[in-house]
Design a protein around this nucleic acid. Structure first.
Lengths: 344, 344
DNA sequence: GAACAAGATGTTTACGTATTCATAATACCG
DNA sequence: CGGTATTATGAATACGTAAACATCTTGTTC
C-alpha cells in the first residue's frame, strides 16, 4: 500500500478509475454515505489505500464552505500564560480534527486577522487579547462572523465570551492581604486597555475601599504585561520612602518581574516583601518564584471556548453567551514568612 | 465603502457585474496584470471596495496549488524556548503574507501532520522536534515534499536543516567549567532521542575527555526536557556522597528545574553549586535564575528556515542544505561567586 | 494605407470535491 | 406478477478563481 508513485497526487477521480466506479461513489464512501454496496465500498477503500489518496483540503473547503481550521490570536506568545492556553486550545481542536492557525499580533484593530474569516482561510476566530471595540471588530460582529473572546472579554459588546471572574479573583487578593495584616500594599497595575486588567483593577481597588483601605496612589505603578516593565515598577516602589510590604501584580508575568526587581535590589521575597500574581502559570509553582497567585481554570475555559466557537460556526445565529469561570486562590511561598518550601 | 450587505460574501463575479466588466478582468486586476486599462482598473477597484470583496482562499488555493500557509510542529509549547522560536517564525511568515498552522504534538511519527501536506492544507512543514527517521517522514521525503528541520536536526537524513552548533556550544561549557577549576561536574543529560541532546552530549563529554576529565557516571542523570524531571535529577545529584559543584543541563528548561531542585534542598546558586543551561531563553536573564547558558541565534535561524522552506516550496528539487549556526556563551549569575547582579 | 504588432477584453475551461438529478436494478406487496 | 417503493449507481453541475484562448481595437511602420 501507498506506493510512492511518480509525481502528482491522486484525486478522487483516480481512485474511481482504479476501483472501476464513478467519482460520485468515491465521494460517497468518503462521506460515509450508507447507500453504497459493500462490494464497491471495499473496492474503493482498497484503491484509496493503493494510491495513498488524501482528499484535497482546498477543494473540500470550497465545496463545503468549511475549512476545519480556526484562527487563534494572542498578543504575546512569550508570556507564559498563552502557551498554556494554546496547549489546551490545540488539544481540544485536535479532538475534533480541526487545525489551529496562530497569529501573534498586538495590532489593536486585528483588521488583518479578521479578513481571514472573510477570505475563508479559517472558519472562525478565537481572540485572547481584544482590548477595545475597534471598527473592524464591530464590522465583523455585524456580519455575524464566528468570533469568540477568550480570556480577555469586553463588557461593551455582545458576542460569545469565555472569561474568568477576574474581579472576584482580585477581591480575594485584597481580602488576603488585608486579612494577613499587611499595612502598606503596593500595586503593579496592568495596561490600561486590557479588559482583564480593568476587572482585576476594579476588584482589587473596590474590595480595598470596602475594607476602608483604599489603595494609595504613591504605591501604585502602571506597567504593561511585561517582565521588564514590572521589574522597573517594582524597583521604583521599593525605593519609596515608605515601601510596600506586599505587592499585587496584575498577572504572573508582571509578578515575576516584580520579584526580580526586588531581588535586583538585594531584597528577599517574602521576607522583605510579599508578591502576589494572577493566572497561576506553571512557572508560578517553580521554587525560585513560588508565587502566590489566582488560578484561572485554563483547560475548562479553552474547552468551552472551542466548543462554543464550533457551535457558532455551525449555527451563526445563536444568541451570544458570556461564560465567566470562577477563579481560586493559591497560596505559595512568595507570601509566607518561611523560606522556600521543601517540596511541592 | 464596505456596506454590510445582507447575506453571502461577494465573489469576483459580483465585482465584475458591478464594475461592468468580465470576471477575467477582475482576476487580472487582482493579479496586478498590466494589460488592463486605467479606466477599467479603477472601476474594478471601486467595485471591490464597495462590496468589501475578498478573494476566496480555498478557490485560490485549488487554482494556484498554493495555500500560503506553512505548518509548524513543536513538541512542547510550554517549554519557553519554543514560544520564542515561534515568535520569530511567525514574524518572518507574516512578512511574506503566509499563515502559520501550529501543531503541538510529540507523536514520534508525525504521521498526522505529514498528511496535511498531501491534503494541501499547508504548503510545507517546519519541524522543530524531529528525533528519528520514522517511516512516515521517510515517505514524505521520498515524495519530495517541502519539509525542513529547524532546531533539532537529524544527521542520518538528507533534507533541509537549520540548526545551531550544539556540539560546539557544549564544548564551550566544558571548557568553561574546567577552566574555572570546577572539580566535580554534574550533568543533567537530555532525552536520548533528541538530536540536540545528542550533539550537546557528544560535545560536552567529548571535550571533557579531551581535557582528561571524562564525565563521571555517578554524577550524571538523564532527564527529559522538562522542569519536573530535571528538578528531581538535581535533587538526586546533590544528595550524592560527593555532590557536584557545578551542573550542566541540556537545556534552559532543565536548568531552571535544576536550580529549583537545589533551592528545594535549601542550597543556593551559585554559592553551593553552579548551574549552566543551553538555549538562552529570555527567562535565563531574569534575576531569579540569572542563568549562565549558551545562546542560539534564534531569530536568524527562524528567518533562514522560513526563507529556505519557501524556496523549496517554489522549487521542490533544490539540493538539501544543512545550515549550522554558531552559538555563543553567556555568563550570568548562576555560575559566578557573587550574589545576584544589580541590574542587566 | 496595408500589413502587422501590441494591447485590451471577453469567453471558456480547469482545479477536486460534494451533491443533485436521472436512471437502472432490486425488493416488496397485494 | 404488475406496479411501486427502495437502493445503488453514474452523469452532470456548482463552488470561486486563474489562465489559456479567441476576438476586437488601436497604433505603428514602411
Amino acid at each position: 500500500m501507498e506506493p510512492a508513485m511518480g509525481g502528482t497526487l491522486a484525486t478522487s477521480r483516480d481512485v474511481a478509475r482504479r476501483a472501476g466506479v464513478s467519482q460520485a461513489t468515491v465521494s460517497r464512501v468518503l462521506q460515509g454515505n450508507t447507500n453504497v454496496s459493500e462490494g464497491k465500498r471495499e473496492l474503493v477503500e482498497r484503491a484509496m489505500a493503493d494510491l495513498g489518496y488524501r482528499p484535497n483540503a482546498a477543494a473540500r473547503a470550497i465545496r463545503m464552505e468549511r475549512t476545519l481550521s480556526v484562527g487563534v490570536v494572542v498578543a504575546d506568545i512569550t508570556n507564559p500564560f498563552y502557551p498554556q492556553l494554546l496547549e489546551a486550545v490545540s488539544q481540544e481542536l485536535e479532538r475534533v480534527g480541526a487545525h489551529m492557525v496562530l497569529w501573534n499580533s498586538d495590532e489593536p484593530g486585528h483588521a488583518g486577522v479578521l479578513e481571514a474569516v472573510r477570505r475563508g482561510s479559517v472558519d472562525g476566530l478565537l481572540f485572547t487579547t481584544v482590548s477595545e471595540l475597534t471598527e473592524p471588530l464591530a464590522e465583523s460582529l455585524r456580519r455575524n462572523e464566528p468570533v469568540l473572546l477568550l480570556h480577555r472579554g469586553l463588557d461593551t459588546i455582545d458576542c460569545d465570551q469565555v472569561t474568568s471572574d477576574n474581579e472576584h479573583g482580585a477581591r480575594m487578593v485584597a481580602d488576603y492581604l488585608v486579612g494577613a495584616g499587611c499595612e502598606r500594599i503596593g500595586y503593579v497595575q496592568g495596561p490600561a486597555r486590557a479588559g482583564t486588567a480593568l476587572h482585576r483593577d476594579r476588584g482589587f481597588r473596590g474590595r480595598l475601599a470596602e475594607l476602608g483601605r483604599p489603595q494609595a496612589e504613591e504605591r501604585t505603578r502602571r506597567a504593561g504585561f511585561s517582565h521588564a516593565e514590572a521589574r522597573g515598577a517594582m524597583r521604583e516602589l521599593m525605593q519609596c520612602p515608605e515601601p510596600p510590604t506586599a505587592v499585587f501584580c496584575a498577572n504572573d508575568l508582571a509578578a515575576f518581574g516584580a520579584i526580580d526587581g526586588a531581588l535586583s535590589l538585594g531584597l528577599r521575597v517574602p521576607e522583605d516583601v510579599w508578591v502576589v500574581g494572577f493566572d497561576d502559570t506553571e512557572m508560578a509553582s517553580w521554587d525560585a518564584y513560588s508565587l502566590t497567585t489566582v488560578r484561572q481554570p485554563i483547560d475548562s475555559m479553552a474547552r468551552t471556548a472551542v466548543r462554543r466557537l464550533l457551535e457558532r460556526i455551525d449555527v451563526p445565529d445563536l444568541n451570544p453567551v458570556k461564560r465567566n469561570f470562577t477563579c481560586s486562590f493559591v497560596v505559595r511561598g512568595s507570601s509566607a514568612h518561611t523560606p522556600f518550601p521543601d517540596s511541592h
